[in-house]
Protein backbone atom coordinates (compact mmCIF):
# COMPACT_ATOMS: atom_id res chain seq x y z
CA UNK A 1 0.00 0.00 0.00
CA UNK A 2 1.24 3.42 -0.88
CA UNK A 3 1.38 5.79 2.05
CA UNK A 4 0.04 9.28 1.61
CA UNK A 5 2.87 11.66 2.54
CA UNK A 6 1.61 14.99 1.31
CA UNK A 7 -1.77 16.66 1.31
CA UNK A 8 -3.66 19.76 2.25
CA UNK A 9 -3.35 20.59 5.95
CA UNK A 10 -6.61 20.21 7.83
CA UNK A 11 -6.30 23.81 9.02
CA UNK A 12 -6.46 25.07 5.43
CA UNK A 13 -9.76 25.07 3.55
CA UNK A 14 -9.96 23.46 0.12
CA UNK A 15 -10.56 26.67 -1.82
CA UNK A 16 -8.54 28.61 -4.38
CA UNK A 17 -6.93 31.77 -2.97
CA UNK A 18 -6.99 35.19 -4.59
CA UNK A 19 -3.23 35.68 -4.23
CA UNK A 20 -1.18 36.64 -7.28
CA UNK A 21 1.19 34.14 -8.93
CA UNK A 22 4.59 34.31 -7.26
CA UNK A 23 3.28 35.87 -4.07
CA UNK A 24 4.41 34.15 -0.88
CA UNK A 25 1.14 34.48 1.06
CA UNK A 26 0.01 31.03 -0.08
CA UNK A 27 3.17 29.36 1.20
CA UNK A 28 2.99 31.23 4.50
CA UNK A 29 -0.69 30.29 4.94
CA UNK A 30 0.25 26.68 4.40
CA UNK A 31 3.09 26.76 6.93
CA UNK A 32 0.81 28.30 9.57
CA UNK A 33 -1.82 25.65 8.83
CA UNK A 34 0.72 22.82 9.07
CA UNK A 35 1.85 24.13 12.46
CA UNK A 36 -1.77 24.30 13.70
CA UNK A 37 -2.21 20.68 12.59
CA UNK A 38 1.01 19.47 14.15
CA UNK A 39 0.27 21.16 17.46
CA UNK A 40 -3.27 19.71 17.34
CA UNK A 41 -4.84 23.05 18.23
CA UNK A 42 -7.25 23.45 15.32
CA UNK A 43 -10.20 23.26 17.71
CA UNK A 44 -9.04 26.12 19.89
CA UNK A 45 -7.32 28.36 17.39
CA UNK A 46 -8.79 31.77 16.60
CA UNK A 47 -7.18 33.78 13.83
CA UNK A 48 -7.37 37.52 13.35
CA UNK A 49 -7.15 38.77 9.78
CA UNK A 50 -6.06 42.31 9.11
CA UNK A 51 -6.41 44.78 6.27
CA UNK A 52 -4.25 44.27 3.21
CA UNK A 53 -3.89 41.40 0.78
CA UNK A 54 -4.46 38.94 3.62
CA UNK A 55 -7.77 40.56 4.61
CA UNK A 56 -9.53 37.52 3.20
CA UNK A 57 -7.43 35.03 5.21
CA UNK A 58 -10.68 34.13 6.98
CA UNK A 59 -11.77 32.44 3.76
CA UNK A 60 -8.74 30.17 3.74
CA UNK A 61 -8.07 28.98 7.29
CA UNK A 62 -10.25 26.23 8.68
CA UNK A 63 -10.41 27.87 12.12
CA UNK A 64 -12.58 30.54 13.71
CA UNK A 65 -11.55 33.95 12.43
CA UNK A 66 -12.18 37.62 13.19
CA UNK A 67 -11.54 40.28 10.58
CA UNK A 68 -9.90 43.32 12.21
CA UNK A 69 -9.76 47.01 11.25
CA UNK A 70 -6.56 48.26 9.63
CA UNK A 71 -3.66 47.93 12.04
CA UNK A 72 -5.81 46.87 14.98
CA UNK A 73 -5.37 43.11 14.79
CA UNK A 74 -3.17 42.93 17.92
CA UNK A 75 -5.84 44.81 19.92
CA UNK A 76 -8.62 42.61 18.53
CA UNK A 77 -6.54 39.52 19.28
CA UNK A 78 -5.99 40.82 22.80
CA UNK A 79 -9.75 41.00 23.30
CA UNK A 80 -10.22 37.48 21.94
CA UNK A 81 -7.39 36.00 24.01
CA UNK A 82 -8.55 37.65 27.24
CA UNK A 83 -11.93 35.98 26.77
CA UNK A 84 -10.44 32.62 25.80
CA UNK A 85 -7.11 32.31 27.63
CA UNK A 86 -6.94 28.66 26.57
CA UNK A 87 -7.36 29.63 22.92
CA UNK A 88 -4.49 29.83 20.48
CA UNK A 89 -4.79 33.27 18.97
CA UNK A 90 -2.78 34.55 16.03
CA UNK A 91 -2.84 37.68 13.91
CA UNK A 92 -1.83 37.69 10.28
CA UNK A 93 -0.69 41.14 9.19
CA UNK A 94 1.16 42.84 6.38
CA UNK A 95 3.84 45.50 6.68
CA UNK A 96 1.59 48.47 5.96
CA UNK A 97 -0.93 47.24 8.51
CA UNK A 98 1.53 46.45 11.29
CA UNK A 99 4.37 48.95 10.82
CA UNK A 100 2.41 52.08 9.86
CA UNK A 101 -1.19 52.42 10.98
CA UNK A 102 -0.94 49.64 13.56
CA UNK A 103 2.38 50.53 15.17
CA UNK A 104 0.89 51.45 18.53
CA UNK A 105 -1.17 48.27 18.73
CA UNK A 106 1.72 45.90 17.94
CA UNK A 107 4.15 47.70 20.25
CA UNK A 108 1.77 47.60 23.18
CA UNK A 109 0.62 44.01 22.60
CA UNK A 110 4.30 43.04 22.66
CA UNK A 111 5.00 45.22 25.68
CA UNK A 112 2.17 43.61 27.62
CA UNK A 113 3.55 40.21 26.73
CA UNK A 114 0.14 39.44 25.27
CA UNK A 115 -0.08 35.68 24.76
CA UNK A 116 -0.71 35.90 21.05
CA UNK A 117 1.34 35.09 17.97
CA UNK A 118 1.75 37.51 15.08
CA UNK A 119 2.59 36.41 11.59
CA UNK A 120 4.00 39.52 9.96
CA UNK A 121 4.36 39.33 6.19
CA UNK A 122 6.83 41.96 4.97
CA UNK A 123 6.87 42.60 1.24
CA UNK A 124 8.04 46.22 1.42
CA UNK A 125 4.95 47.63 -0.27
CA UNK A 126 1.19 48.15 0.05
CA UNK A 127 -0.16 45.29 -2.04
CA UNK A 128 -3.93 45.46 -1.81
CA UNK A 129 -4.26 49.16 -2.52
CA UNK A 130 -2.02 48.88 -5.56
CA UNK A 131 1.65 49.31 -4.76
CA UNK A 132 2.04 52.40 -2.59
CA UNK A 133 5.06 53.10 -0.40
CA UNK A 134 5.10 51.19 2.88
CA UNK A 135 7.04 52.01 6.05
CA UNK A 136 9.19 49.05 5.02
CA UNK A 137 9.79 50.14 1.42
CA UNK A 138 13.52 50.39 0.77
CA UNK A 139 15.41 53.61 0.06
CA UNK A 140 15.12 54.45 -3.64
CA UNK A 141 12.35 51.87 -4.10
CA UNK A 142 9.91 53.10 -6.71
CA UNK A 143 6.24 52.80 -5.75
CA UNK A 144 3.09 54.60 -6.86
CA UNK A 145 3.49 57.10 -4.01
CA UNK A 146 7.27 57.30 -4.33
CA UNK A 147 7.48 57.57 -8.12
CA UNK A 148 11.02 58.99 -7.89
CA UNK A 149 12.09 56.39 -5.36
CA UNK A 150 11.78 56.54 -1.56
CA UNK A 151 13.86 59.48 -0.38
CA UNK A 152 15.50 59.16 2.98
CA UNK A 153 15.43 62.90 3.69
CA UNK A 154 11.65 63.03 3.49
CA UNK A 155 10.42 59.47 4.20
CA UNK A 156 13.21 58.36 6.51
CA UNK A 157 14.65 54.89 6.61
CA UNK A 158 12.51 51.74 6.50
CA UNK A 159 11.37 50.37 9.85
CA UNK A 160 12.89 47.12 11.09
CA UNK A 161 10.00 46.02 13.26
CA UNK A 162 11.47 42.82 14.66
CA UNK A 163 14.60 44.60 15.88
CA UNK A 164 12.45 47.37 17.33
CA UNK A 165 10.21 44.99 19.27
CA UNK A 166 13.27 43.11 20.54
CA UNK A 167 13.78 45.93 23.04
CA UNK A 168 10.56 44.94 24.79
CA UNK A 169 10.65 42.40 27.59
CA UNK A 170 7.14 41.18 26.84
CA UNK A 171 8.21 39.96 23.39
CA UNK A 172 9.51 36.48 24.08
CA UNK A 173 10.12 35.22 20.59
CA UNK A 174 10.98 37.29 17.52
CA UNK A 175 12.38 35.89 14.30
CA UNK A 176 12.73 37.02 10.71
CA UNK A 177 12.48 34.29 8.11
CA UNK A 178 11.90 33.88 4.38
CA UNK A 179 10.16 31.30 2.22
CA UNK A 180 12.10 31.85 -1.01
CA UNK A 181 13.61 28.33 -1.08
CA UNK A 182 12.94 24.95 0.56
CA UNK A 183 15.66 25.37 3.17
CA UNK A 184 14.29 28.74 4.23
CA UNK A 185 10.75 27.34 4.23
CA UNK A 186 11.80 24.65 6.69
CA UNK A 187 13.37 27.28 8.93
CA UNK A 188 10.29 29.48 8.60
CA UNK A 189 8.03 26.65 9.65
CA UNK A 190 10.22 25.86 12.63
CA UNK A 191 10.07 29.50 13.67
CA UNK A 192 6.28 29.65 13.33
CA UNK A 193 5.97 26.49 15.37
CA UNK A 194 8.24 27.86 18.06
CA UNK A 195 6.21 31.08 18.16
CA UNK A 196 2.98 29.14 18.68
CA UNK A 197 4.64 26.99 21.35
CA UNK A 198 5.77 30.09 23.23
CA UNK A 199 2.16 31.27 23.25
CA UNK A 200 0.75 27.90 24.28
CA UNK A 201 3.25 27.75 27.14
CA UNK A 202 1.90 31.14 28.26
CA UNK A 203 5.31 32.79 28.11
CA UNK A 204 4.38 35.98 26.30
CA UNK A 205 4.21 37.63 22.92
CA UNK A 206 5.71 35.98 19.85
CA UNK A 207 6.11 37.17 16.28
CA UNK A 208 7.55 35.77 13.08
CA UNK A 209 8.36 38.25 10.34
CA UNK A 210 8.28 36.57 6.96
CA UNK A 211 9.91 38.35 4.02
CA UNK A 212 7.73 38.05 0.98
CA UNK A 213 7.62 39.06 -2.64
CA UNK A 214 5.02 41.16 -4.41
CA UNK A 215 5.65 40.47 -8.10
CA UNK A 216 2.54 42.36 -9.21
CA UNK A 217 3.32 45.62 -7.47
CA UNK A 218 7.07 45.34 -7.79
CA UNK A 219 6.45 44.99 -11.54
CA UNK A 220 8.51 41.83 -11.92
CA UNK A 221 8.14 38.18 -12.75
CA UNK A 222 8.00 35.68 -9.91
CA UNK A 223 11.62 34.67 -10.50
CA UNK A 224 12.85 38.27 -10.79
CA UNK A 225 11.09 39.21 -7.59
CA UNK A 226 12.76 36.34 -5.74
CA UNK A 227 16.12 37.63 -6.85
CA UNK A 228 15.19 41.22 -5.98
CA UNK A 229 14.19 40.14 -2.50
CA UNK A 230 17.50 38.35 -1.94
CA UNK A 231 19.59 41.23 -3.30
CA UNK A 232 17.73 44.16 -1.79
CA UNK A 233 15.55 43.10 1.13
CA UNK A 234 17.71 40.52 2.85
CA UNK A 235 20.73 42.81 3.33
CA UNK A 236 18.52 45.42 5.03
CA UNK A 237 16.25 42.92 6.75
CA UNK A 238 18.68 40.17 7.84
CA UNK A 239 17.16 36.80 8.63
CA UNK A 240 17.64 35.68 12.18
CA UNK A 241 16.28 35.39 15.66
CA UNK A 242 16.04 38.56 17.74
CA UNK A 243 14.52 37.00 20.80
CA UNK A 244 15.00 33.30 21.06
CA UNK A 245 12.56 32.34 23.76
CA UNK A 246 15.52 30.79 25.63
CA UNK A 247 15.52 33.75 28.01
CA UNK A 248 12.24 32.44 29.38
CA UNK A 249 12.89 28.72 29.10
CA UNK A 250 14.38 28.38 32.58
Amino acid sequence: MAERTFGRPEALLDVPTHYCPGCHHGIIHRLVAEVIDELKVIDRTIGVASVGCSALAYDYFNVDMVQAPHGRAPAVATGVKRVHPDGVVFTYQGDGDIAAIGTAEIVHAAARGERITTIFVNNAIYGMTGGQMAPTSLVNQVTTTSPYGRKQDSAGMPIRLSEMLATLDGAKYLARVAVNNPANMAKAKAAIKKAFEIQIAGLGFSMVEVLSTCPTNWGMSAIESGTWMEKNMMPYYPLGTFRSGEEVAK
Binding site: A68, V76, G79, V80, V83
Partner: peptide, 14 residues
Protein backbone atom coordinates in the same frame (compact mmCIF):
# COMPACT_ATOMS: atom_id res chain seq x y z
CA UNK B 1 -8.62 53.14 19.39
CA UNK B 2 -7.03 50.03 20.87
CA UNK B 3 -9.67 49.84 23.62
CA UNK B 4 -12.61 49.70 21.20
CA UNK B 5 -10.78 47.11 19.12
CA UNK B 6 -10.23 45.00 22.22
CA UNK B 7 -13.97 45.32 22.77
CA UNK B 8 -14.46 44.24 19.16
CA UNK B 9 -12.28 41.17 19.80
CA UNK B 10 -13.88 40.29 23.12
CA UNK B 11 -17.40 40.70 21.72
CA UNK B 12 -16.39 38.53 18.74
CA UNK B 13 -15.26 35.93 21.24
CA UNK B 14 -18.75 35.91 22.76
Amino acid sequence: VAAINMVYGAASAG
